[in-house]
Design a protein around this nucleic acid. Structure first.
Length: 494
RNA sequence: GGGCCGUUAGCUCAGCUGGUAGAGCAGUUGACUCUUAAUCAAUUGGUCGUAGGUUCGAUCCCUACACGGCCCA
C-alpha cells in the first residue's frame, strides 16, 4: 500500500488481498463472452415478452460494472462493454448465498463476467437474469460520480482512460475521428492513390515554414530533426513515378500549445501528377462532403455554434480580393506597395518586420482581418510567391503562385498548390530562404540539395495538398479544442 | 510572452464582511426479491494547489510560484 492511497483505495486493496487469499487466480482470463451489450439490445430489444420468454436466449456478457442497486436478496447492475451497457439482474435464489454475498462486496468499476438468460423487467428493460457471475478484475481506483461523470478538463486529458470509461461523448468523438480517417483512405485508394510512409526523422527538415524539434543520432553522430512535413519526400516519390501518393501521419512543430495547436499533429498530404491546384480544390470539396456524409451521415450540421450546409458550392476568392473585402479603406492598385502596406499594418496594430515584402505583409493583413470571417467553407487562392517557397509561380502574374488555402469555421483546414517543378527556380527560392535563416528567421527553410537533384531528374506537373486531420475532426465533432480530438494531448508534466 | 478566471473530500460542487469546512454521489454498517441518479436509517472521509506575508486568528486579504481553462500576441 502506497502512502498516497486514500481510504477508498485502501478498502479496495483489502478486498483484493482477501480475494488473493482464497487461492484462486485473482485476475482470471478464462471467461469467454459470446455477446456484446448493444448487439443484444438491437437483436432482442424489440421482441415481445412472450417471444423472449419462449426463446430463452442464453448469453455470456462481460464488462465494467457502472451502476449497482442492491435491494436485499436481489440486485440490478449495469455492465458496460465496448458497444454500450446492458443491465443484469442478480438474485440470491438463482446464484446461491455465498456467491451473492461476494457480489455485494464488489465495487462499481470492477469488471465482471455474467451468464444467464435474456428477459425483460417489469419496467421493460432488456436484461440478463444471471445464473453465473464472476469477478474478472478488481478495480482499485474509484470511478468519478456516476451522474456527473468526469468534468474536470485537465483530468480528462491527463487520464483519458477515465474519461473514456465515463463519457460516452468522448468515446463518440474518437470513433468519429477513426471513421474520418478510414473514409479518407478509402476515397484516395479508390482514386488510385498509393499510401506510403516517409521518414519522421530527417537530416534536413523541409516542406513547411516552422521550427523543428531536434534530436541526435549517436551512431551517425549527427543531429536529426522530427519532420515538420513529409512534402519533399513525397515529391521525390512523384519524381520516381509514383504519380499519386499520400501519407496520413504525424508532423512535429516546436511551437506553443493552444486550442488549435499541439506539438504533434496529424496531416494528410497527397500529390497528384498531371493535376493543378484547381483540381485539388475540387478534390477538397468532394472530400469534405464525403467525410461529413461518412462521419455524420449528413451534409448539414452545427459545429461550434455555427451552421454548415455543404450542399452549397464552396466560395473561391483571391487573397487580394479578400483583403479588400475585409478592409474597405484599402486601394487595390497599391496592394503590392511595401510602404503602403506597412502603413496599413500600423493602422491596424499589426506588427511587421523590416525584411517583410509586399507578399508577407499582405498575408499578415489577411490573417488578422480576414481569416476569422471565413466561417463557411471557403477557398482563398492566389497566394504571394514570397510566402509560398514550394509553389509554382502563376504564369500570368509572377507575384503570385497557384496556391490555395481552405478555411471553415474561421480555421485553416487545408493548403494546396500546383507544385514548383522547375529545379532552378526551386534552388533560387531555397537560397532566399537560407538568407532569411541567416538573418535570424528560425522558421525559414534549409537548402535541401538532394531535393534539388531529384527535381533535376524531372518531376511531372503535379499538384499537392495537405489537410489537418485534427482540425477536420474538430469541425466534424464540434470540438472547441484540438485536445478534445487527441487521445493523449500534450500536457506539462504533473 | 501578456490579460482574465479557476484549483476545497475519490467525483460534482457550496462555503456571506477573516473566527480552524459543508452537501450530493461514492465508501462503510443496517433494512429491502423488478430497480432506472433505486429508496430508507446511521456513519467514515479534508495539509482548502504550494511557499511566504499581513493579522490575536487566513479556505477567505496580499505576494510569488505550480498546474489548468479562456482570450490576446
Amino acid at each position: 500500500m502506497t502512502e498516497d492511497d486514500n481510504k477508498l483505495v485502501a478498502e479496495r486493496r483489502a478486498k483484493l488481498a482477501a480475494l488473493r487469499a482464497t487461492g484462486g487466480p485473482a485476475f482470471p482470463n478464462d471467461f469467454r463472452r459470446d455477446a456484446l451489450a448493444n448487439e443484444l439490445l438491437l437483436g432482442y430489444g424489440a421482441l415481445s415478452d412472450a417471444a423472449l420468454e419462449a426463446s430463452a436466449v442464453r448469453v455470456k456478457v462481460a464488462g465494467r460494472m457502472m451502476l449497482r442497486r442492491i435491494m436485499g436478496k436481489a440486485s440490478f447492475a449495469k455492465l458496460q462493454d465496448s458497444s454500450g451497457q446492458i443491465q443484469i439482474f442478480v438474485q440470491r435464489e438463482a446464484l446461491g448465498e455465498q456467491p451473492y454475498d461476494d457480489f455485494k462486496g464488489w465495487d462499481v468499476g470492477d469488471i465482471l463476467g455474467a451468464e444467464g438468460v435474456l428477459f425483460r423487467t417489469k419496467t421493460g428493460e432488456l436484461s440478463v437474469r444471471v445464473e453465473g457471475l464472476r469477478l474478472l478484475v478488481k478495480s482499485l481506483q474509484p470511478l468519478p460520480d456516476k451522474w456527473h461523470g468526469l468534468a474536470d478538463t485537465e483530468a480528462r486529458y491527463r487520464q483519458r482512460y477515465v474519461d473514456l470509461i465515463m463519457n460516452e461523448d468522448s468515446r463518440a468523438v474518437f470513433q468519429k475521428r477513426t471513421a474520418l480517417v478510414r473514409f479518407l483512405r478509402d476515397m484516395l485508394d479508390a482514386r488510385g492513390f498509393l499510401e506510403v510512409e516517409t521518414p519522421m526523422m530527417q537530416p534536413i527538415p523541409g516542406g513547411a515554414v516552422a521550427r523543428p524539434f531536434v534530436t541526435h543520432h549517436n551512431a551517425l553522430g549527427i543531429d536529426m530533426y522530427l519532420r515538420i512535413a513529409p512534402e519533399l519526400y513525397l515529391k521525390r516519390l512523384v519524381v520516381g513515378g509514383l504519380e499519386r501518393v499520400y501519407e496520413i501521419n504525424r508532423n512535429f512543430r516546436n511551437e506553443g500549445l493552444s486550442t488549435r495547436h499541439n506539438p504533434e499533429f496529424t496531416m494528410l498530404e497527397l500529390y497528384q501528377a498531371y493535376a493543378d491546384y484547381r483540381d485539388l480544390m475540387d478534390l477538397v470539396e468532394q472530400m469534405l462532403r464525403g467525410a461529413a456524409e461518412a462521419v455524420l451521415g449528413t451534409l448539414q450540421f452545427d459545429s461550434q455554434g455555427q451552421h454548415h450546409d455543404l450542399r452549397d458550392a464552396f466560395e473561391r476568392v483571391t487573397v487580394e480580393d479578400l483583403i479588400l473585402r475585409c478592409n474597405p479603406g484599402l486601394e487595390r492598385a497599391r496592394l503590392r506597395d511595401v510602404p503602403y502596406l506597412r502603413a496599413a499594418c500600423e493602422a491596424r496594430g499589426i506588427p511587421w518586420k523590416p525584411g517583410d515584402g509586399a507578399g508577407k505583409l499582405q498575408i499578415e493583413i489577411f490573417e488578422k482581418t480576414g481569416e476569422h470571417t471565413l466561417v463557411q467553407p471557403t477557398f482563398v487562392y492566389a497566394y504571394p510567391a514570397e510566402v509560398s517557397p514550394l509553389s509554382r509561380a502563376n504564369d500570368l502574374d509572377p507575384f503570385l503562385t497557384d496556391r490555395f488555402e481552405f478555411f471553415v469555421g474561421g480555421r485553416e483546414l487545408a493548403n494546396g498548390f500546383s507544385e514548383l517543378n522547375d529545379a532552378e527556380d526551386q534552388a533560387a527560392r531555397f537560397r532566399a530562404q537560407v538568407e532569411r535563416k541567416d538573418a535570424g528567421d528560425e522558421e525559414a527553410m534549409f537548402y535541401d540539395a538532394d531535393y534539388i537533384r531529384a527535381l533535376e531528374y524531372g518531376m511531372p506537373p503535379t499538384a499537392g495538398l495537405g489537410i489537418g486531420i485534427d482540425r477536420l475532426a474538430m469541425l466534424l465533432t464540434g470540438s472547441p479544442s484540438i485536445r478534445d480530438v487527441l487521445l493523449f494531448p500534450q500536457m506539462r508534466p504533473e
